[in-house]
């Protein structure tokens, strides 16, 4: 299959990219292209123009910004996984990113591209949500920061306006000693997650002091399992207590019914996988 015709622009700066988007409401941003190019090939989308960010150097890389780690939107998955800062301060990001697609796709696909695509079956949105990430957008009016909880609005829809660009993602460093796990459940290696669970757990002695739980593919947006987080606070780091807390995992979720599974099965999986993910992260 072959994409329909489009115009192409590869600006050098964020400002030029934003200007190009502002000038053409049917333009689309091309980041790594690993979701967009197949969509164009299947002719599921007909943008007039692609604004390719590959030359915008300021969008690449990871930097330490004191209490937060900042990942440039055009940082490739493979670079995120290998980055020492990410491994140190946002290990959950590295763990989930390592499960995205396959090595060749991770060489092209980008952190910002995956988040801006906002596929609830994607692995990274739940992580951004669980870690209280701030997504920084730049538009004609300047920059603004959007909390992950506000960023993902619906299936493939974000809070970005058509002339805004996701430029970087600020991930607050977790204070204290945390351990993390991303539990992905899919039918074959290449398949998208039927359900995924992103967890970070801080233990204090024999109990769980704090936990973060984000769910992949349990609704039209990623879901923060706040009831589980609340239930885990202060409980003993033991299988029984974790299992009990994980029973709340599906609360408030509206997962899809599709080829991957029916909603009730996904809710069941969310409970089982949350239990496993938290137990693994907590070293139980």
């Amino acid at each position: 299959m072959i994409p329909a015709e489009f115009d192409y622009l590869a600006p050098d700066t964020v400002a030029d990219a934003v200007a190009a988007l502002a000038a053409d409401e049917d333009a689309k941003v091309l980041a790594g292209g690993q979701s967009l190019i197949p969509v164009l090939r299947l002719r599921l989308s007909y943008p007039t123009q692609l604004v390719d960010l590959r030359k915008v150097q300021e969008l690449r890389g990871v930097r330490d910004d004191g209490d937060a780690l900042v990942i440039g939107a055009m940082t490739r998955h493979s670079d995120v996984v290998a980055d020492p800062l990410v491994q140190q301060h946002a290990a959950l990001v590295a763990a989930a990113t390592a499960t995205v697609a396959d090595p060749a796709v991770r060489h092209r696909g980008t952190f910002g591209g995956a988040l801006a695509h906002a596929d609830p079956a994607g692995d990274l949105a739940a992580v951004a949500l669980a870690l209280d990430a701030e997504l920084v957008a730049e538009g004609p009016g300047g920059r603004r920061s959007i909390a992950a909880a506000d960023f993902f609005q619906d299936y493939l829809q974000t809070a970005l306006s058509p002339d805004e660009l996701l430029v970087e993602v600020r991930i607050p460093k977790l204070e204290g000693t945390w351990s993390v796990h991303y539990e992905k459940f899919n039918r074959v290696a290449q398949a998208w997650a039927i359900v995924g669970v992103a967890t970070a757990v801080r233990r204090e002695g024999g109990s769980i002091a704090e936990a973060r739980v984000g769910l992949t593919n349990m609704g039209s947006t990623p879901v923060r399992a706040t009831a589980v987080e609340a239930a885990l606070r202060g409980v003993p780091a033991e299988a029984g207590a974790i299992a009990e807390a994980a029973q709340h995992a599906a609360e408030g979720t509206t997962p899809p019914d599709d080829l991957g599974g029916k909603a009730d099965y996904r809710q069941h999986l969310a409970r089982v996988l949350t239990r496993r993910a938290v137990a693994t992260a907590a070293g139980v």
């Binding site: 039918r187 074959v188 290696a189 290449q190 398949a191 998208w192 080829l259």
Partner: peptide
């Protein structure tokens, strides 16, 4: 091939 699940090496 997104929905028709042909096994890859890990499967």
């Amino acid at each position: 091939l997104v929905d028709y699940l042909v096994p890859a090496a890990p499967d």
